[in-house]
Design a protein around this nucleic acid. Structure first.
Lengths: 157, 157
DNA sequence: TCTATTATCTCGCTCAGCAAGATTCTTGTT
DNA sequence: AACAAGAATCTTGCTGAGCGAGATAATAGA
């Protein structure tokens, strides 16, 4: 057995234009993560806190209320961790706890307007840049990007 | 002032084919993160441990040695955290500490072959799927994907 | 009303990561 | 050669995010 198997494993998929893009996608994921982390650190928050704000804003954009339990489930936290998370965010003034009037066991979490504005000031330019880039694309190019990303989502499940 | 400013902020960028793709990219980043997290949890590791393994394997693929200090810097850990990280990985048998022969202060970290194989068994299918997807694209479509991802990397700095 | 269930919170704990400093080795100076 | 300065890693003691178990409060069904 003259072959070295160790190297073989690492280089299994031969490099090519496809592998370059695979690495590029991974790099983008890492960079976006860093971009979020920077936002967190600048505002004295933790990565989980940012994920929470984004989750809350997404729900708000879709016109849905988010309860504490909902939020915890979305972030993969148990109830104790969720309480601590909401405590942190509330203490920092980023969210408000509001008792649900219909079911008084529930606590819906509302994002403070200033936290929304703060988020936009950080993520807005990134989004604007993305939209700019994509405006230069024709329908087939857009379909290619959409298809690749959609395919990767399905594969990553 | 009859307008409600709160809604305006959230909906600032008008929805369209571009925004759909922006959200898609973000979703992919989240899903890839979850995919890593699942790998971590299945093998009793923490997210940082997985990031460390990937960093180490990337360096190995590029033919570079990685010292403890290098690794810590790449992950944004201080020296104490780095020592703890390498302790965990070594205890789990995923890496080996090897004293550098030239500069005996340095400790280079080597990834165990079984950890490499384990990583491939989890991330390989995802990579294969990506390559499959991209093989169906012509040069202009590949350029579109590459251009979008590259642009987003630059914007996320 | 009484019980089962649901939603959140409290308490005590574990462990990743930090700050400060100790240890070990290298390099430049005298 | 010996010593000082600096570099790379490790040790110690601590903070705080998140977990498990169980308490509390509110709803829904019999």
């Amino acid at each position: 057995m003259p072959d070295q198997e160790g190297e073989e494993l690492v280089e299994r998929a031969e490099p090519g234009p496809e592998m370059e893009i695979v690495h590029l996608l991974r790099a983008v994921a890492v960079d976006l993560g860093r971009h979020s982390t920077r936002f967190a650190q600048r505002n004295g928050m933790h990565p989980t806190d940012v994920r929470a704000l984004i989750t809350l804003m997404d729900a708000a954009r879709a016109g849905e209320e988010t309860t504490a339990g909902h939020l915890g489930t979305a972030l993969g936290l148990n109830s104790a961790g969720t309480t601590a998370l909401v405590d942190r965010l509330e203490r920092a003034g980023h969210v408000r706890r509001v008792r649900d009037a219909r079911d008084r066991r529930k606590v819906t979490i509302e994002v403070d307007e200033r936290a929304v504005a703060l988020s936009w000031s950080h993520f807005g330019p990134l989004i604007d840049r993305a939209v700019d880039l994509l405006r230069g694309y024709d329908e087939r190019e857009l379909a290619a990007v959409r298809g690749f990303l959609t395919g990767m989502r399905k594969a990553a499940v």
